[in-house]
Amino acid sequence: MAEVVISFDTSDADKVFAALAQASFRNRLLRAVGGIAERQTKQRFATKVSPDGAAWAPWAGSYAHAKSQKGRGLLQKTGRLFGSIANFVAGDSVEVGSPVFYGKFHQFGTKKMVARPWLGANQANLTEIETTLVSFIRAVVG
């Protein structure tokens, strides 16, 4: 009877799993991913485009004239929301957001205010994060 044997070299995977088991490596990885996601989020304030690719609605009516005279961008009446955007590493996860209470009104809209989503990720954002993850893994494997 013929015998077929398939074997796999798991040494590279073992290295990756060992690195991931180290809290310092996980923290570096999560901080890198969080930094990218934070930059991507802040970039939306310059491009005025939601994660799904839709342009933000312009200023409403008379509000537009008052704000354009002061040179302020959308969602930047005081700069507080933009300035508060940060990433937070907690355990095995990273979050990007703002503690500013009115951020949710801009994200989801209200009865009187159109939504201008500033949080979230699109495929290009995820691809950039994936590239960073691959770089970290390649550094471990050598």
Rank of each mutant, 00 (worst) to 15 (best):
M1C: 11
V5E: 13
S11Y: 09
V16A: 10
A18T: 15
L20T: 06
L20N: 02
A21E: 10
A21C: 06
Q22D: 14
Q22K: 14
F25I: 01
R28G: 13
L29Q: 03
L29A: 00
L29E: 00
R31S: 11
V33A: 08
G34C: 01
Q40F: 03
K42L: 07
K42Q: 06
Q43N: 13
R44I: 02
R44H: 03
P51W: 09
P51S: 04
D52R: 07
D52Y: 02
D52F: 03
G53C: 01
A55Q: 08
P58G: 06
W59N: 05
A60W: 12
G61K: 15
S68L: 15
Q69T: 11
G73Q: 05
G73V: 04
L74W: 05
Q76E: 14
Q76N: 14
K77D: 14
A86L: 11
S98H: 04
P99I: 05
V100D: 02
F101C: 07
F101I: 13
F101A: 13
K104W: 08
T110L: 00
K112P: 01
K112W: 09
M113W: 04
R116P: 06
L119R: 00
L119T: 02
A121Q: 09
Q123R: 12
N125H: 14
L126E: 11
T132V: 15
T132M: 07
S135W: 12
G142V: 07
